[in-house]
Design a protein around this nucleic acid. Structure first.
Lengths: 218, 218
DNA sequence: TACACTACAAGCAGTCTTGACTGTTTGTTT
DNA sequence: AAACAAACAGTCAAGACTGCTTGTAGTGTA
């Protein structure tokens, strides 16, 4: 039985590839993924064509097709990369925060921080764009389920720590807050006023503190 | 000086076209817009090609090109139609609610109701999809500004009525709530569990009631 | 060193999409 | 009713996008 690469990789940092060929492959793939993210967040899903990605990455079309036989393969790789990278970033950032209520509160800010990255806009573009492609709409939801599991696990665990045992409520809260942040990303595309976006986010944080007070009977 | 058609039309219902040609035009345009909305919400922006829209509408390509010379013209017409239609729907629904705190609370539900319509998903697709097209990204933001004005006006006015005079707070609240609802629309694409979406929305309503209590010193 | 394999390069074919063009039918006006 | 305008129908050409194919350089292993 072969080892399940995807399942194990989520926990620890990416293992650096060994061997010259493996390094070359990894470098090429990384450049393509980075270029795709850049174009996705800047120009959107429809503008993210294979030709433009290869150009932006400085990679020949042949090399690209060798690494990612189809466009769907590239998009899935991009999505998967974003999900895994951001999960690591969130864990790293949260590691410095003491367990208990401080961590429960901090989670919102940590997720918000990752939302500021261009990767988040790229992922959002894929979320909506993938619907137009039968192959992607078949493969992409699995990536989203991974993401949802990652995002739900933390709050539920920390909620238990501080005495909020209602998992359904915590899950709804996580869902709502994530939705609000995604919505604010979209909103920002048209308002172009970071102060307003920031104020809306701070309101969300205030909401959360009110609810925690209420849940803990204060 | 010519009358400004766009400015006046927002307030009252659409005037029915007079004359056979005008009726034919209006009918053709309506069918194309409806077909575009259907495809947008079902298959996404990239799949909404001019050929497919014409087919779905049962309209020849020639007729389509006569009514909407370019694809951007069609998309803008769709967005504009959605914004105006939903504004009327919200006003109509809100008309039956007494002024004061009841109306302030009701606004959230009314907006949520319009979010359930396929038109909202279509508009969301346009929001992200338009970024890929230079012409659309030039023309579309104006439509969004209209929408934002519509959505902000109500809460500010009703907020004054019930003694919440902090316009900036009301605006941030409106922005956050709208963002949350948009986010929940996206979330629903991948969770496929309306109960969870509903629970998250109810949490948002609870949030709002807590904040109102706090603002009114209760 | 010989050989197989991996990674890359570049051109090509088929398909799709958009917008333009020509001609026809239907409506309007005088 | 005659002349004009508007709406519609169907075809065509240019360009773009994806994926395939053939050929080349670099790498690993015996």
């Amino acid at each position: 039985m072969k080892t399940n690469k995807l399942a194990s990789v989520a926990e620890e940092a990416e293992a650096p590839p060994v061997g010259a060929n493996a390094r070359r492959s990894a470098a090429t793939r990384a450049r393509l993924v980075a270029a795709a993210i850049e174009i996705l967040q800047r120009d959107g899903y429809a503008a993210t064509t294979t030709v433009r990605v290869a150009q932006e990455a400085g990679v020949s079309r042949g090399a690209m097709l060798h690494q990612f036989p189809t466009r769907a393969d590239l998009i899935i790789a991009v999505a998967d990369h974003i999900v895994r990278t951001q999960d690591r970033a969130r864990r790293r950032e949260l590691r410095g925060v003491a367990r208990g209520e401080a961590r429960f509160t901090a989670i919102t800010g940590v997720v918000w921080n990752t939302m500021q990255q261009p990767e988040s806009m790229a992922l959002l573009e894929i979320m909506l764009g993938s619907r137009s492609d039968p192959e992607l709409s078949a493969r992409f939801p699995a990536v989203m389920r991974d993401l949802e599991r990652q995002l739900a696990a933390g709050p539920v665990e920390v909620g238990d720590d501080i005495g909020i045992g209602d998992h359904e409520l915590i899950e709804a809260m996580t869902r709502l807050h994530l939705a609000a942040m995604r919505g604010l990303m979209i909103d920002r595309l048209f308002t172009n006023d970071d102060a307003k976006t920031q104020k809306a986010f701070e309101l969300l944080v205030w909401y959360k503190s009110l609810i925690v007070d209420r849940m803990l009977g204060r």
